[in-house]
C-alpha cells in the first residue's frame, strides 16, 4: 500500500461517504454536511491528479461559497419549527435501475480509454496562467461574463420578490 494509494482511497472515501449520506439522510442540515464531505472529497481527488490550483479553487468556490449559499437556503426554507421537519426520500427501484444503467454505460464506454490500474498521480505543470491568458483567453473572459450575468440575474430575481 503505497502512500499514493492511501491518498486516493482517502479522497475517494470522503466523496463516496458524502454521496451515501446525501442518498439516505432525511434532515436538511445533514444533507448539507454530506454534500460538504463530497465536495471536499472531490477537491482531494483533484489534488491527487496533480492539480492543486483546481483543488484550492474547488474548496474556495464550492465549500466556501456554494455550500454556504445552500446552508443559508436551508436555514430560511426549512426553518426549525417545534417538530423538526423531516425530508422524505422516495426510494424507487425504477430510479435505482436507471441510475445503475447510466453508471454502467459510462464505465463501459470509457473503459477502453482509461487503463486498468489506478491512475497515476499527476505532476503539477504550473503554466495555467499562460494557458488562460493565451490560447484560452476567450473562454476565460466568457467565464467572467457568465459570472457577471449570474450576479445580475440573482439581483434581478431578488428585486422582483419585493413587489
Amino acid at each position: 500500500m503505497t502512500l499514493e494509494v492511501i491518498a486516493f482511497t482517502l479522497a475517494g472515501l470522503l466523496a463516496a461517504g458524502g454521496a451515501v449520506a446525501v442518498l439516505f439522510v432525511r434532515e436538511a442540515m445533514r444533507l448539507m454536511i454530506g454534500l460538504g464531505s463530497f465536495l471536499l472529497g472531490v477537491a482531494g481527488l483533484f489534488l491527487y491528479f496533480g492539480l492543486p490550483f483546481l483543488a484550492t479553487a474547488q474548496v474556495f468556490v464550492y465549500v466556501g461559497g456554494v455550500l454556504v449559499l445552500m446552508v443559508f437556503a436551508v436555514m430560511v426554507v426549512h426553518r426549525q419549527a417545534d417538530d423538526r421537519p423531516v425530508m422524505e426520500v422516495r426510494h424507487d427501484v425504477g430510479a435505482a435501475a436507471v441510475a445503475l444503467a447510466v453508471t454502467v454505460t459510462i464505465v463501459a464506454c470509457l473503459r477502453s480509454v482509461v487503463g486498468d490500474a489506478l491512475p497515476t498521480p499527476g505532476v503539477y505543470s504550473g503554466v495555467l496562467a499562460d494557458e488562460l491568458l493565451g490560447p484560452k483567453l476567450l473562454v476565460f473572459e466568457m467565464a467572467g461574463a457568465l459570472l457577471l450575468t449570474g450576479l445580475v440575474a440573482v439581483l434581478t430575481i431578488r428585486e422582483g420578490e419585493d413587489r
Binding site: V59, F60, V63, G64, G65, V68
Partner: peptide, 10 residues
Amino acid sequence: FLAVPSIESI
C-alpha cells in the same frame, strides 16, 4: 491559506 478559512462560515 485564503481558501481554507472559508470553511469557517459553514
